[in-house]
Amino acid sequence: MGMLAAMSERAVRRVRELTGGPSVLDGLTGSDLTTFLLDVFRRRARERRPADVLRRYREDRFATPGTVDLLSLRRAEDALLTALPPGTDTVSLAPLVPLGTHWVLGGVDPRKAVATVRGTEVAADSTVGLALEAAARRTGAGTVRLATTQRVTRAQLFDGAGAHFQLFAFVTAGRAPDFEREHLAEHLRFLIEALRGREFRIALTCLDRQGEAIAESVRSLPGVVDDPARERGRDYYRHLCFKVFLTGGEDRFEIGDGGFTDWTAKLLSDRKERLLTTAIGVDRLALHARTG
């Protein structure tokens, strides 16, 4: 058991002891649990003073501003949005998704998402939100292309970083016979256009034989290289995944990643559904443009 899991388990035991045993907590489900938690937070909020709020604002990594200025973010976002292929719909996602979304689709530990008392969790990955919207649109529709830029929040600790950052996401959903080859090429050409004028690498990792066959169609594109040694993301993606780097000499600065997932197949209970995702950290792209 990891440290985070052990701390969580100890906290749950303490609460159960204070409330008279496991039956009390186990019985709090649905609207009763929501009502109980809302009352707990109402009481705590009423105890706060202005000085308390300001102190938390200064100290809480979930509340402090980002480190990249807004104008730099806007310029980076514009470069990405204007490079999108024709037929892409831009979406303004809600800041919340249904509780458990990141776990059900991406297998992300629920403790790494910020849950709310109303049965939702704060968006931690914009590609997950776009996958939900793509699945909703896929009923009776053809290929769906969606893109967004969104401030996302993650509970896990990052060295030298806050809990929130701007994420650009682009997904394509469909079930055409040659879906993987066609749309991987489209996503990579989008990245090449968006990063025009910069030195970059798009590192492909093939996860199985099908991934090897898909990769053959894009290996001749500018900046595309193979990265068979990649370890992270092998349980997250299917067939093929990639990382996006800005480069300078021997230095590499990671700004994003993408690949094929089974999320719309899960959501629609249809194994023929396909989804390709690309995500770019806008803060990182803007920071490199400012310091590079």
Results as ranks from 00 to 15, higher is better:
D262G: 07
T264H: 04
V244I: 07
F190T: 09
I255R: 00
D227H: 10
G259W: 03
R219Y: 08
D226Y: 07
G197L: 12
G256P: 05
Y236W: 11
K266F: 02
P222D: 13
P228K: 09
I255N: 02
R238M: 07
F245D: 13
S269Q: 15
A194M: 09
I192Y: 14
I214N: 01
V244D: 09
Y237D: 06
E231S: 12
T264A: 01
E231Q: 09
G197W: 13
L188G: 00
L240D: 05
G249N: 13
V224A: 04
G223A: 10
A265W: 09
P222L: 12
G248A: 04
D227I: 02
V225L: 13
G197P: 11
R230Q: 14
L268N: 11
L204G: 00
L240K: 12
T261N: 09
V224Y: 07
I255H: 01
F190Q: 14
V224F: 07
F242M: 06
I192V: 10
D227V: 04
D227G: 04
E186R: 10
P222W: 14
A229C: 10
I192L: 09
G197S: 10
L240P: 02
G258V: 02
R189H: 09
L191M: 11
G223Y: 08
G197I: 15
R189K: 12
F190D: 15
R209S: 15
L204M: 11
E212W: 11
G259D: 07
G258D: 12
L188V: 05
V218Q: 11
G197T: 14
R230I: 03
R238F: 01
T261L: 09
L207V: 04
Y236P: 00
E186I: 13
P228H: 12
E193R: 15
D208Q: 14
T261M: 03
L268V: 04
E186V: 12
T247F: 01
V218K: 08
K266V: 02
